[in-house]
Design a protein around this nucleic acid. Structure first.
Lengths: 234, 234
DNA sequence: CGGTATCCCCCGCGATACTG
DNA sequence: CAGTATCGCGGGGGATACCG
């Protein structure tokens, strides 16, 4: 697999930069607001760290991202003007995936990734003034899965924190969920109300919090993408 | 490189199908109207035939293309409804490549590929009623290039044929060009008139044909994409 | 935290030859 | 024309350990 396609076509040259393995997913993380190395890596846990470094360097060399070295030894990755113009591509990839693929396969289930994404999509403005601690516990997890299955979400007025070890606060709301069901809800494949009815997802806590909880979740950016109209006979 | 990214995110799942090596380029060919195996392969000469077969099977399994077996033993590849929805992605990739990359690198120069693409972008309606035979001869070709450098284009009212061996007809118009210059013109990086002035491209033949020739060429689909506004100090 | 450095395996892929 | 079959290699990338 020698690099490059040997074609002057703009599509081919763009592919040499954009369509490398993991690259669109790295860009997705940057568009989602990730800036630091470990932040990016948390959104893509299955990429090895050396490979993530390599891809970031390649994107930098291609002028897609700019690396800023912060004084404290940290790095910071920002999309360049050219990089920002990949936004519609990520958008369309997600739209296509939402319309034409089944995403909730066992091999794709990952409770940690689900929580990491969910954390970014909380409607801060709807949260009550005082801190709310929500504990999530997942069941129905694939045998091969080696990550965490219990999480604490600390919801504060202007900030959300995700913990994988008990932060010690009193829990206000308990969420117990089948991982596949919660993933379907996140992706817009199933209504939260429906999963609550079938008890694949259960909420336990003060009535007002149980009632308000669904309104805090924005779900995946692609949850609302319209599905293809079923063809006749399909 | 085990397949898949292990993420339920629609972007990731779409990437598993779309962002494989060569796949966007195969789709580009299908959008350009290629339907048969060798037709697709002519647009992507550097892919090995077994690998092209493999990619086509993968796209078929993913529901992106449909293969029709014709009675004469030929196959025919068509984009499915899902496949057609990749159109904006190919468009965006080409647009990005046109705006942000330099495409006319030595490693990308390929006279055969240039002619094969040029052939598809002739304005049939502007051709004169009788056949016009144009002979192209390229110079300035990279030493590593092993393809043809002389071509005959048979322009007829409703059809264009490309030959790499002398078809035997009398030549009406001779085009002699530097390969890089002709590629730049094709990609919209340089005006044909400019290349004619510098004599990187020369036209020899009847005056009326020499004059009409530029109007027959539509150039690359991306030739007209607006370039980024130069940043101050760039 | 944000990377390097090293080792090594595996499989993606090209090359080549063959077939209906 | 449109593939299939087989072989062998090279390097992409995972695992692991180390560093400033």
């Amino acid at each position: 697999m020698r690099s490059g396609f040997g074609q002057f076509c703009p599509v081919a040259v763009a592919c040499e930069i954009f369509a490398e393995r993991w690259t669109p997913i790295i860009l997705r993380e940057l568009f989602n607001g990730a800036e630091h190395f470990n932040e990016i890596h948390r959104g893509i846990p299955l990429i090895s760290r050396p490979l993530l470094v390599k891809r970031l360097r390649e994107l930098e060399a291609a002028g897609v991202i700019v690396r800023e070295a912060l004084p404290n030894g940290r790095g910071r990755y920002c999309l360049s003007e050219a990089g920002k113009e990949f936004a519609p591509l990520i958008e369309q990839l997600g739209t296509w995936g939402q319309r034409w693929t089944s995403r909730v396969e066992r091999r794709n289930l990952d409770a940690g990734l689900l929580m990491w994404n969910l954390r970014r999509r909380i409607v801060l403005e709807l949260l009550p003034p005082q801190r709310v601690v929500v504990r999530f516990k997942y069941g129905g997890i694939p045998a091969a899965y080696r990550g965490y299955r219990v999480f604490w979400l600390l919801l504060e007025r202007m900030q959300v924190d995700l913990c994988v070890v008990d932060p010690g606060f009193e829990v206000d709301l308990y969420v117990t969920a089948d991982l596949a069901a919660m993933t379907r809800v996140w992706l817009g494949d199933e209504l939260l109300e429906s999963a609550l009815r079938t008890r694949e997802i259960e909420l336990v806590g003060k009535g007002e919090l149980v009632k308000a909880f669904p309104s805090w979740l924005m779900l995946s950016r692609f949850a609302g993408v319209p599905r293809p109209v079923a063809a006749a006979g399909g």
